[in-house]
Design a protein around this nucleic acid. Structure first.
Length: 563
RNA sequence: GUCCCAGUAGCUCAGCUGGAUAGAGCAACAGCCUUCUAAGCUGUAGGCCGCAGGUUCGAGUCCUGCCUGGGACACCA
């Protein structure tokens, strides 16, 4: 069930009102008119002593108004109508900041909003239901998902959740590279293991897959099918092994990802691009548009027209296609399906591929901006302070499954969500595994568990929860701090969506949890002597609980009822 | 050689379109559990933001050069 909330969050309303008043004051003071009035930005200062909101409008105006920022600030403040905005106090500080200290009682109004909207609190319509497609993970179906894929899965899924929550119409897609040489290799690897299981000798192909999964396939085939494939023509045999290996590998991918709480709407097969004629059509299209030429017996794509370093081969001189051509076809298909924006989440090893893909998208008649490629940087694994070396050849690399088994899903997802996706990260296994306060995932989860505990206690004491309780007893600084954080949630989601920055969500959650823990330690929710306060605080607690839960949902981390 | 990412507190990392005294967690130190879960709270300490120039009212943020670490640069996929 999708609901969008057209009306503005109470915090937005207050901020917008204040911005309007500031803009009016600028004109009233004769500092600037119409278009010369800069966009008013209200930021929340890091330092609490700098007020609830701060504006740098006076500094922005310095060049236009040709006056000193502080003098401008005074002009603005003198002409400001504070009646409509909940402003308690204004000060001019530093180089010309105008700091607003608000009468924060208005924040109480976020509570009914949260309770009304429940699991939808934080949802917005900034995405305007724009159709976006996000392709991520897309690991070759030839083995296990490793560390890098795990990061891509966590980041990609969280990002999709965030985009969806911010009002985009999101389709999650996994591109299955089931058509290239690597699949021939897979078939041969299965074949080799099959013969091996039968006690016969068959060499592993060059670059074959050494993983335990392939070995298992061979053994299963041998025990289920006996030696019948030994007597089958090689071509037919390999075709069967190809199909079989592929099916099993994809099943395994789906299983692992599902367990990691990552689901795709579409599993798109590369082979389908060939069978439905898309690849041929794309080649023809590029040819007709004059985007290709022949040279040295190969067909080249004029990608350098669109900023690529050099042109790229689409059809090799032996007549076979390069990887690029089906990839272009795939992107043509994406846009053909009506997506306004296509987001690729790729591993760092593909970054050199971006310019040619951007070139392709433009050659297909789309804007460069319609394609967004987010690079997932490398992950270095550490355990007990030491770097864990990984080797692909021996299949000894740490897999997504290892992480889920050893570290747990919540900690793994939180750790990946915590970091900016396009920067290198160290993954500390010992830390992720540790069940102590050193592990940051528990801080947020603990806040949720504490809240649940409060409600259990309330029930035991026979206190009935009344969502419509009078909220006037809520006025302490700690309470209002918590409410302010809650009120910021929709905007934080929107920013995270806009910046492709899931890590902003963990930062936010940590701050929210911190505000709550601080309140919890300072004040008691339930006070036998004060029934109205107890009722009001329970409602506040419910709002915190809902917001924490919604935030954790976005990054795919459970909100536990007990620790 | 060209390109991408990074270099911020002892460690891991934030820092939104340039804004105030550069933030958080962990680690360190000092306090807080007869009261809703101490996986918590309160406080202290910790920094030539890799180096050097430049742009301007103002630079961790933008530009140039350099240093260090990681990665990418196929008619492979």
């Amino acid at each position: 069930m999708r609901r969008t909330h057209e009306h503005m969050n109470i915090m937005d309303q207050v901020k917008e009102q204040l911005k309007t008043e500031i803009a009016a004051a600028i004109e009233a003071a004769g500092l600037a008119w119409g278009e010369d009035v800069p966009e008013i930005v209200l930021e929340t200062p890091k330092e609490k002593s700098h007020g609830d909101f701060a504006s740098n409008a006076a500094m922005k105006l310095a060049s236009v108004a040709k006056k000193a920022p502080r003098a401008i600030a005074e002009d603005i403040v003198n002409h400001l109508n504070t009646d409509k905005a909940s402003v308690k106090e204004i000060e001019i500080a530093g180089p010309g900041f105008i700091n607003f200290f608000m009468d924060n009682r208005y924040l109480i109004d976020v509570i009914p909003e949260v309770l009304d909207q429940g699991a939808d609190y934080g949802r917005s319509d900034v995405g305007k239901q724009k159709k976006v497609q996000v392709e991520f993970v897309s690991a070759n179906p030839t083995g296990n998902l490793h560390l890098g894929h795990a990061r891509g899965a966590a980041v990609g899924d969280s990002l999709c959740n965030i985009l969806d929550f911010a009002g985009y119409d999101v389709t999650r897609e996994y591109y299955i590279n089931d058509a290239g040489n690597q699949i021939v290799n897979l078939a041969r690897s299965v074949e080799s293991r099959y013969f091996e299981a039968l006690g016969m000798d068959m060499e592993m192909p060059e670059g074959g897959y050494q993983g335990a999964d392939v070995r298992q396939f061979g053994e299963e085939l041998a025990s289920e099918q006996g030696d019948r494939f030994v007597h089958v023509e090689e071509e037919e045999r390999l075709e069967f092994f190809r199909e079989y290996g592929l099916k099993r590998e994809i099943e395994k991918l789906k299983q692992d990802l599902e367990q990691f709480r990552v689901r795709f709407d579409v599993w798109y097969s590369e082979t389908a691009l060939y069978t439905n004629g898309n690849v041929e059509e794309t080649l023809q299209y590029l040819h007709d548009q004059g985007e290709t030429y022949e040279e040295d017996g190969a067909v080249w794509f004029r990608s350098s027209r669109y900023g690529d370093d050099k042109d790229r081969v689409l059809v090799k001189n032996d007549g076979t296609y390069t990887y690029l051509l089906p990839d272009i076809s795939y992107h043509r298909d994406k846009f053909g399906r009506g997506f306004e924006k296509v987001i690729n989440i790729w591993g760092a090893d593909h970054h050199g591929y971006i310019p040619r893909m951007e070139a392709a998208v433009q050659a297909l008649g789309h804007d460069k901006e319609q394609l967004e490629t987010q690079i997932i940087q490398m992950v270095n694994l550490f355990e007990n302070g030491e770097r864990v070396k990984m080797s692909k050849r021996t299949g000894k690399a740490v897999t997504l499954r290892d992480l889920m088994d050893e570290v747990g899903i919540d900690a793994t997802r939180y750790f990946f969500a915590m970091r900016s996706p396009d920067t290198h990260m160290d993954f500390d296994l010992s830390l992720a595994k540790s069940q102590s306060n050193e592990n940051p995932v528990y801080y947020v989860q603990y806040a949720h568990a504490r809240l649940c505990s409060i409600f259990r206690q309330a029930e035991e004491r026979g206190i009935t929860f009344d969502p419509a309780a009078d909220l006037t007893p809520i006025h302490s600084e700690k309470e209002l701090d918590v409410l302010k954080k809650i009120g910021e949630f929709p905007e934080e989601v929107a920013i995270a969506a806009d910046k492709f920055a899931p890590h902003r969500m963990t930062t936010y959650l940590h701050e929210l949890a911190s505000a709550f823990h601080s309140f919890y330690n300072a004040d008691r929710v339930m006070d036998a002597e004060d029934e109205p306060k107890t009722q009001a605080r329970l409602v506040l607690a419910k709002a915190v609980q809902t917001t924490v839960q919604n935030g954790l949902d976005l990054i795919g981390v459970n909100a536990p009822e007990t620790m």
